[in-house]
Design a protein around this nucleic acid. Structure first.
Lengths: 208, 208
DNA sequence: ACTATCTTGCACAGCACTGTGCAAGATAGT
DNA sequence: ACTATCTTGCACAGTGCTGTGCAAGATAGT
C-alpha cells in the first residue's frame, strides 16, 4: 500500500493557518485572492499550492471543516420544547459566526453552491424538525408553511450575525439578539421571546 | 453653449434595454460580465461602450435609477400609525423587488458601496422614522435600539424577497410574507401581525 | 550533522475580463 | 435619397488573477 507519510509539524500548522486566514479574509471579501489569504497566514502565495492543489480545494476544505465544527456545536441540542430548541440552536450557532458566515456566502454564489448546501443539510434538518414540532404543538406561527419558515429562521439568524459585525455589538448582546430574532421570526412577540430566553438557564450567556 | 443633440430613438431604447438587462442579469449573478448583459439586451458587448463609458458607469446609473424608482414608490406612504406605515413600506417595496435586490447587493460589496448607501439613505430614513415613532408610542419592541432595529427591518424585508424568488412564491403571498416578516421583526406576534394586515385595507393585495 | 520536507522567489503560460481604435455596415429621420 | 447616428466585428493592450516549473534556501526531526 502507498502510505502517505505524516507531514512535518510546521507544515501542519501552516496548513491550519491558511484555513484560518481564509476564514477571516473571506468574511471580509468573498472574492479574496490567494495572495491575500496567504499573506494573512504569513506565507507566500506559492506555498499555498504545497497544501492545496487549487483554490477550489482550499475552499472545499474550509467549508467542510466549518460544517463539522457546526455539527459538533449542535451536539446535545435536544430540549423537549421546540421553541427553546430553536433558541438553543441560534445560541450555539452564534459561537461559530465565522464559519457560518462563510458558509452562508458560498451556499448562494459560485460553483461550491451544491457542496455547501450539502454540508449545511444536517443543520437545516435540525431547524426544520424543531419548526415542525413547534407548529404541531401550537407554539409557533402557522401562517407560513414550516419548510419556508425554517429557511426564514436561517435568514434571520444570519441577519443577526451581520448586524453584530456591522455595529460591532458586544458578544453577550449579539448572542441575545440572534435568539430574539429567531424567536420573532417564528411568531413570538418581543415580550414572549424575552420571557422564553430569560426563563431558560441554558439560553443565558455562559458565565466565564 | 455646447448642447448635446437628442439621441436617436432606437439608441434610447437600447440604452434602456441595457439597464433592464443589467437588472435581470445582476440579480442572477452579481458579477455578470458586460458580455452577458449586452447579449441579454440583444446587443454586442462593443455597443455598450456607446452608451456607458465604463462598466462602473452602467452600474451607477442602474443604481440611481433604482433609487428614484423606489423613492417614487414611497411617495404617499404616510399613515398615522407607525406600525401600519412600516407594513406599507414593505408592501410598496415589494413591487420594486428587482431594483431593491440589486441595490442590496451593491450596498454591501464592491466599490459602489458608498454610492449605493447614499442612494438608499432616504428609504432608510423613512424606516428609521417609523420605527422611532412606533417605539415612542409603545407599539414596537424596545429591547433593540431603534437604529439597529431599523436595519434589521431592512434585512427581514430582503429575506422575504429572497424567499419569494427561491421558492417562487405567488405574488400576493410573497407580498404578504414581506409584511408579516417586517412586523414580526419589529416585535409583533404572528397573530398581531395578521390582525394589522387584515384590518388595514391599504395593505391588502391590490385587486386587478 | 544530515536529510527529507517545506518555503520562497522568479518566470511564465493561461484565462476572463475591461476598455479602445477603426472601418464597414445598418438604420432612423428628414 | 441622403446623412448623421448607431451597431458590429475584429484586433489589440492592459489588468489581475490562478496554476506550474525550477532552483535556491530554510527548517524540523533524527
Amino acid at each position: 500500500m502507498t502510505t502517505t507519510r505524516a507531514p512535518r509539524r510546521d507544515a501542519a500548522e501552516n496548513r491550519d493557518a491558511l484555513l484560518a486566514a481564509a476564514r477571516v479574509e473571506l468574511n471580509l471579501d468573498a472574492d479574496a485572492s490567494l495572495e491575500a489569504i496567504a499573506t494573512r497566514a504569513g506565507l507566500s502565495r506559492r506555498s499555498v499550492y504545497g497544501h492545496f492543489a487549487t483554490r477550489d480545494e482550499l475552499l472545499r476544505e474550509l467549508l467542510t471543516s466549518g460544517a463539522t465544527r457546526v455539527s459538533h456545536a449542535m451536539a446535545g441540542v435536544d430540549h423537549p420544547d421546540p421553541t427553546i430548541r430553536l433558541a438553543l440552536i441560534a445560541s450555539r450557532l452564534w459561537f461559530e459566526v465565522d464559519d457560518i458566515r462563510v458558509m452562508a456566502v458560498f451556499a448562494v454564489r459560485g460553483p461550491l453552491k451544491t457542496h455547501t448546501a450539502a454540508a449545511l443539510q444536517p443543520l437545516r434538518d435540525r431547524v426544520l424538525a424543531a419548526v415542525v414540532d413547534g407548529v404541531a404543538l401550537g407554539e409557533l406561527r402557522t401562517d407560513i408553511p414550516a419548510g419556508r419558515l425554517a429557511r426564514l429562521v436561517e435568514d434571520s439568524a444570519l441577519s443577526a450575525l451581520a448586524a453584530s459585525s456591522r455595529d460591532n455589538i458586544a458578544a453577550p448582546e449579539a448572542h441575545r439578539l440572534a435568539m430574539l430574532l429567531v424567536l420573532s421570526t417564528v411568531g413570538l412577540s418581543a415580550t414572549e421571546a424575552a420571557a422564553v430566553i430569560d426563563g431558560t438557564p441554558e439560553l443565558a450567556w455562559p458565565a466565564r
